[in-house]
Design a protein around this nucleic acid. Structure first.
Lengths: 238, 238
DNA sequence: GTCTATATTCAGATAGAC
DNA sequence: GTCTATCTGAATATAGAC
């Protein structure tokens, strides 16, 4: 108790400030002066603790993704242990993969909505090193979930499953990025921009059914047929 | 014929170079020196022709979005004229909205895949002015398509339709952005990164069924019930 | 570990000759 | 319209005192 209050140390204050500022303004749009000013530390501290701005960005992600991917593997292990060799349900696979992600939004110690939004913006980040420097962190997780989906959907071509995995990632990325591209013309207020722990739960209720619907959609070559089976109305013009 | 070859004028060469470079490196990551160097024009030409870097970005988008949104309105007008007051089919609405977008990828004079990728990266762009400065250009189109979807899906709450509109935009944005987030762990090569006119057609075949499946997915509160109706197997653990 | 001061490079923008 | 030359500010990074 030699110190009355225990401030987070310099290193973590820098990481917290960088996480928030990278989310708000992007990597190129955030200067190290802004980061250190916001964190209340000296400008030179970034290079002392991390070596460079690029290394700082890597650490911002690494400290969150380590937990996320461990959690994802853990959830998949649990499910497969209980399934006793049977294929998992697609909905359960998605719940584990995206549920672990959305859980981060409810827990400030895991980054909360701030990190979730930052992550949502990285998928389409122009700078290559930002998208690719975590390939190693993701490799095992994606491979395991990919194979779980292959087993869950044995009649769907594997290439199609990969595509839909991509598309689910894209939809989820946009959802957690918190931007509202239709804001100007949307009457009803969406809770996209809400903060707080319940934001992630709202997101799950909205997004998960959409993803599952997309994953299970009829295959390209059968779209027209099944379309007409569901609505057997006489063919209209074009 | 006083000039043997007719090079594009300075203004358009700047726009073409900026379009490509903004796509590759982002707005903050692209300097005006790089743009003018790439276009083979003088550095001062950007400020002479456009006034500022920000105004240049606006013009890069404006010249493409003008066509896109006119085309989208035209397609909707045609469909509604042929429907004779009846609601349109959801699949037709999506085909018009996203088909107009994907058509740009097949036509170099409309920007081709370069503009499509640039556009795919703007939805989650950190800089506010990039996402918001076209709200006016989009307003009418989004309002018209939104109302068409409301009529096409009268039993779905309007807020849910807006949400799924967002999610479709997110999935499509990622698809046209051309990034392959799963590249490191994907065995099969996707044609995400292919250029050329046929890339957009591949995209349509892959993405449209997914979007339609998501749009028509069971509503959140009914997910569990319909889930069990489709697969009436005895309840497993959890 | 933290600070001041500074080196070095590069950014967007502009004045003024042609 | 196009060019050279330059202004002004800000960026990352580091050297060296404390």
């Amino acid at each position: 108790m030699s110190e009355a209050r225990t401030l987070p140390d310099t290193r973590e204050r820098i990481l917290d400030a960088a996480e928030r500022l990278f989310m708000e303004s992007g990597y190129e749009g955030t200067s190290m002066r802004t980061i250190t000013g916001d964190a209340g530390v000296n400008l030179a501290a970034v290079n002392y603790h991390f070596g460079s701005k690029e290394a700082l960005l890597r650490e911002v992600f690494r400290r969150r993704l380590a937990w996320l991917n461990r959690e994802r593997l853990h959830r998949l292990d649990e499910m497969e242990a209980h399934a006793g060799g049977e294929p998992l349900k697609p909905s359960a696979i998605l719940s584990a993969f995206f549920g672990a992600l959305l859980h981060m939004g409810t827990d400030e110690s895991l980054g909360g909505m701030t990190f979730l939004r930052l992550l949502g913006r990285t998928l389409t980040e122009p700078a290559d090193f930002i998208r690719t420097c975590f390939a190693g962190e993701y490799a095992e997780v994606v491979d395991r979930y990919k194979r779980a989906l292959f087993r869950a959907l044995p009649d769907v071509p594997r290439e199609e499953i990969i595509w839909r995995f991509h598309l689910m990632l894209g939809a989820m990325s946009y959802a957690i990025s918190g931007t509202d591209a239709l804001q100007a013309v949307t009457d009803c207020e969406l809770d996209l921009n809400n903060d707080g722990p319940q934001a992630a739960e709202h997101l799950a209720a909205r997004v998960m059914p959409f993803l599952l619907g997309g994953l299970r959609a009829p295959l390209p070559q059968f779209v027209t047929n099944q379309e007409q089976q569901r609505k057997p109305e006489p063919s209209k013009a074009a």
